[in-house]
Every structure is written in structure tokens, then in C-alpha cells.
């Protein structure tokens, strides 16, 4: 295939223990380490492996978000993507709006394969890839744990609640990836230097003529109710008695 498009979201790093803002409007992101959404990083790794095996010519990465997303796109370029596109927008963007913006990019670039993470680890929405697939009228395979590229189709194994489902889907296609698909590579210093010379286009969403108006209003973001702390027991007998007292075993 000619092109693979990979969509990357900038999120709070998965190692950060999040904090809720005192006014309960959002979580704290100022001064917090940000990274490529880990599932999107797996999507990029897969695209790079497909290209390196000779089955694709170009890997393009795209992100929707504030100017700072350029950091994550540079990381993606250092991993090996050929060029990057940022649709710059400073506010939070809902998944359907992101999908509409990506749809415009897809029409411009005409990739045969579009890869995304199965969900972002911040809003846990799990929507963008499927919405994009519907807008493009493309086939989709979500939760991919194995992917093999044929001449005009893909065979994708999906991690579903019932086990492992395998689909054959025609190109152009959208695949959202799960954890076990691959282990993303580490970026080396010379690659970071090289990435600085790669192309990173910044696009204004107004030029794509997509409404950025949200469907939802966030009323609050709060901490979940804590679980009460429990007690230590010494052996199986004590556990049996404790569970029996609660009517959980007999």
C-alpha cells in the first residue's frame, strides 16, 4: 500500500497519578508529564513494522490538539514516521469532532490503512476510530491483537469478550489496536535529531470547515468514592468465618 495514517493523542502519561482540580472542573494537566496515548503508540509501531517489511511506502501521523502536541508528533517522527500533521485547537475536542477533522485529512491524503489506539487513557471514550470508519464508510476492526496485510485486505485478530475473533476486512480499512499487538520501540538520540528535519504541517480546523461546537457540557470531574480500608486476617479459617458472617459462603 502507499500510505498508512496513524492518529496520535496527547494524554497525561500513564505513570502519572492524576489529581482532580480543587474546583472539580477537570484533572490537573499543568506541569504534568504528557505522552503519546500508549495505545496510539502501539498503532504507530505497527505502521512502522508494516512499512519496514516493505508493505507500505509512507507513514503519516496526525494529531488534533493544542500547539504542545508538536512534542508528541516529534516523538512519533523520531520513532520513524515520515511526516506529521497537527490540526491545532486549544480546547478539548470531542471524539465525533476529532473524527470529522480526521475524515477531512483522510480525504486529502487517501491512506489505504488508518491505525489508532483502541481508546485514549484520559477520557476512555473508545469512539474515534469507529466514528471515523463510519464517516469514511470503511471497514473496521477494533481491539486488534494481530494483523496481517494481504494484497487488498487485512486479516485481523480481535480481543473480544468471548475470546479471539478473526475478521478479514477489505482496504481501505480502519484498525484500532489493543495492548498485545506489539511492544513499541524506544526512540534513540540520533533519531530525535533527524526528526527535527521532518515535515510537520500545522492546520487550522477552520480551514477544514468542521464545526468545533461540543455536544456535551462537563458539569464536574470528581474523585470516585473511596473504599473503606479493610482488615488483615491470618489464615483460611479466619477468612471462611469472616465470609460466612457476611453470608458470602456457606
Amino acid at each position: 500500500m502507499e500510505k498508512i495514517l496513524v492518529c496520535l493523542k496527547r494524554v497525561v502519561d500513564y505513570n502519572v497519578k492524576i489529581r482532580i482540580k480543587p474546583d472539580e472542573t477537570d484533572v490537573v494537566t499543568e506541569g504534568v508529564k504528557m505522552s503519546i496515548n500508549p495505545f496510539d503508540e502501539i498503532a504507530l509501531e505497527e505502521a512502522l513494522r508494516i512499512k519496514e517489511s516493505g508493505q507500505a511506502n509512507e507513514v503519516i501521523i496526525v494529531s488534533v490538539g493544542p500547539e504542545d502536541c508538536q512534542q508528541q508528533l516529534r516523538t512519533g517522527l523520531a520513532m520513524g514516521a515520515d511526516r506529521a500533521i497537527l490540526v491545532e485547537h486549544s480546547e478539548n475536542t470531542e471524539p465525533l469532532t476529532v473524527a470529522k477533522l480526521l475524515h477531512q485529512i483522510v480525504q486529502q491524503e487517501q491512506p489505504e490503512l488508518i491505525l489508532l489506539g483502541k481508546q485514549a487513557i484520559d477520557d476512555d471514550c473508545n469512539q474515534t476510530g469507529q466514528m471515523l470508519a463510519e464517516l469514511c464508510s470503511y471497514s473496521q476492526a477494533t481491539y486488534a491483537s494481530k494483523l496481517s496485510v494481504g494484497s487488498n485486505s487485512l486479516e485481523v485478530t480481535r480481543e473480544v469478550d468471548q475470546g479471539l475473533e478473526t475478521l478479514e476486512i477489505d482496504l481501505p480499512a480502519i484498525v484500532t489496536v489493543d495492548l498485545r499487538l506489539n511492544d513499541p520501540r524506544y526512540v534513540k538520540l540520533p533519531d530525535i535529531m533527524k526528526a527535527k528535519k521532518k515535515s510537520l504541517d500545522v492546520i487550522n480546523p477552520n480551514d477544514l470547515k468542521i464545526s468545533m461546537d461540543p455536544f456535551f457540557k462537563v458539569i464536574s470531574v470528581t474523585a470516585p468514592p473511596p473504599r473503606e480500608s479493610g482488615i488483615k486476617l491470618s489464615d483460611a479459617g479466619e477468612l471462611f468465618d469472616a465470609l460466612k458472617a457476611k453470608g458470602l459462603v456457606d
Binding site: L96, M131, F216
Partner: peptide, 23 residues
């Protein structure tokens, strides 16, 4: 909100041109 519903509902929402609430 199973792998079935999560696979399907965003396509329905996009076809209806509305945002989706997950979970």
C-alpha cells in the same frame, strides 16, 4: 459497554451525527 457495544455504538452515533456517551 462490552466489546460488542463499544465496537458498534460509535458508528451509530456518527451515522446519527451526535456525540456518544461511553460507560
Amino acid at each position: 459497554s462490552t466489546t460488542f457495544g463499544r465496537d458498534l455504538m460509535p458508528r451509530i452515533a456518527a451515522a446519527l451525527n451526535v456525540g456518544q456517551i461511553t460507560d
